[in-house]
Amino acid sequence: MAENNAKQLKDLDQIRALIQKHKKNDFIFAFIGMFIIASLTITLLILFLDLFFDGYPRLGLEFFSNYPSRKAIQAGILSAWIGSSLVLIVTFLVAVPMGIAAGVYLEEYAKKNWLSDLIEINVSNLAGVPSIIYGLLALGLFVYSFGLGQSILTAGLTLALLMLPVVIVATRESIRAIPVHIREAAFAVGATKWQVVLNHVIPYSYGGILTGVIIGMARAIGETAPVITIGALTFIAFLPPSPIGTEAPFLNFDWLQSGFTVLPIQMFNWISRPQYEFHVNAAATGAVIIVLTALMNGFAIKLRYDVRKKIKW
């Protein structure tokens, strides 16, 4: 009896020792996990800080109001940031309505048939196509077949193609979150399908769609490869014609056909120069891009968090 007890106690000790050992594994793994995440974050932080410190001497008002120049110290990103803004206007105007429309169609209208399957496959496939392929598409199709040239319009459309899957996916996800009984309630008082979509589905998924749009726009700002591929010029010392005219109808569209450059291309151009002074300019441009995209992404992430928290059906 006593022997048995002693044996059990010994077993218990062994088990405890084993657990201790296993728990050590737990602890070690948790430590490794945290270490990796922390070092990743810190590495990136260092990289960004380095970018800011490298670019700091150039980050003044003049940097934003000067054209690129052969002299690094006088060079600025005026044509690049205006070019980026104009390209993004085109991208926004094309990708957002089309993306929302496509998302609404797939969630609310599409019946389960070969056509909707085909569209589904294509949307998910497009999200995985490398961005440079879109550049080649735009080069063959927009620049030469459609004769749009290496213009703001071409670049805007190209980036819109890239952004489209992002908007579609975001739209669909947030529409899917709306419960069926809300739609049924609207139908039950006699609304038509389009009234249900316009008065309920789109307004209630607005937050999620907006999140997707902002993330897509942030990505479009930083996209370089497709814009280079369509043949955007890297040295632009002029501005496109102003979209706002002095005479009625106060809008003109000549700017769509203008040559242009964008922020990431300007940065790429400066990195490619051998002189150190231009690398400073590249760092300053990089800092501008990082701040822009981080602000947009941060806002989008916060927005999504708020939306999830707010709406409880």
Partner: peptide, 12 residues
Amino acid sequence: ISMVFQKPNPFP
């Protein structure tokens, strides 16, 4: 002919 549902489903 109007309808009231099982779960209250007001619009947001």
